[in-house]
Amino acid sequence: MTARAWFGITRLAMAAACAVSLVHRQLWGLNSQTIAGQNFFSYLTIQSNIAFLALAVVGGIIALRREEDPGWLTDIRTAVLSWTITAGLVFALLVWQAGLRGVPMTVPWSDVVLHFVLPVFSIAGWIIGPGRRRARWRVVALVVAYPIAWGLVTLWRGQRIGWYPYYFLDPRQVSGFAEFSLTCAFALGVFVGVACGLIALSRFHTVRPREPIHHNARRLDM
């Protein structure tokens, strides 16, 4: 079996691990009988991992059928991995902040898989995985557009239901507009930084589109 085939199987295995973790995390949240558990799909971290699941399935099938990823798949991988890696970093920051604030925060094994294990394997696959094209810098705009759109919808919805998925979006938990703006700017900066890092890494280990080979007929002088 080729390295590319093994890579495809690894992608599908990561998709399975992501699916099992998402189901467990949802059931765990529902059992807690809290408003957070009832708003499972409102979290950016969960939405990004659902996108990761779909991407891993598509990418795994393509890796088993083709020697190289198409350019569009590399672009989508850049965006989705930027979201999931940043979500993992933000989740780690939230756990740390909860400890500083004296707020107990239980982290089930599914959160560990979604926010730490899968992002680490994704970075490794991005660096050494065979058949990846170069990522394009224009994808950074897409990487930033999604959290901005999500944030606007979340703020609008939060005012209506009185609940926000992350503390720094809740006006009741921040000192004012300055802290809110700085925290959001920092989060967007992390998204941009992660995306730029992935794009830069894609320059070191990549494949180029194959050029068609033209066969010239030989003329024999008699």
Rank of each mutant, 00 (worst) to 15 (best):
R132D: 07
W109L: 15
Q97G: 01
H205E: 03
E211W: 00
V103N: 09
L188E: 07
R138A: 13
F121T: 03
Q159V: 11
R4T: 10
I50R: 01
P108D: 05
A185G: 05
W163R: 04
A54Y: 07
N39R: 14
L169I: 06
F180T: 09
Q33H: 14
W156Q: 15
A63G: 04
G71T: 10
W156M: 15
V57I: 12
F91D: 10
R4N: 05
Q47S: 09
L155T: 13
T45W: 00
G193L: 01
G131V: 03
I127T: 08
Y166L: 08
R203E: 10
V20H: 02
A124H: 02
S21R: 01
A178T: 15
G29Q: 00
A195S: 07
L12H: 06
R157S: 12
Q26D: 01
I9H: 10
N31P: 00
W6Y: 13
A135T: 05
L220A: 11
V140L: 09
L114G: 04
W72Y: 11
G102W: 02
D75Y: 11
E68T: 14
T183D: 08
V143K: 04
I76M: 06
Y146W: 14
F116L: 08
I127Y: 11
N49K: 03
I161W: 07
Y146C: 09
L118W: 00
E179W: 01
G60P: 06
L27M: 11
D75S: 14
C196L: 15
R138Y: 14
Y166T: 07
L169C: 05
E67N: 15
F121Y: 10
V194L: 08
A79M: 13
T34G: 10
Q97S: 12
G129C: 05
Q26C: 05
A56F: 12
W126A: 11
I127R: 09
L114W: 03
R160Q: 15
P130V: 05
I123S: 02
A98Y: 03
A63C: 09
W109P: 02
I62Q: 12
S181N: 01
P165A: 01
C18T: 11
F91Q: 04
S181D: 03
G59Y: 07
G60A: 06
E179T: 13
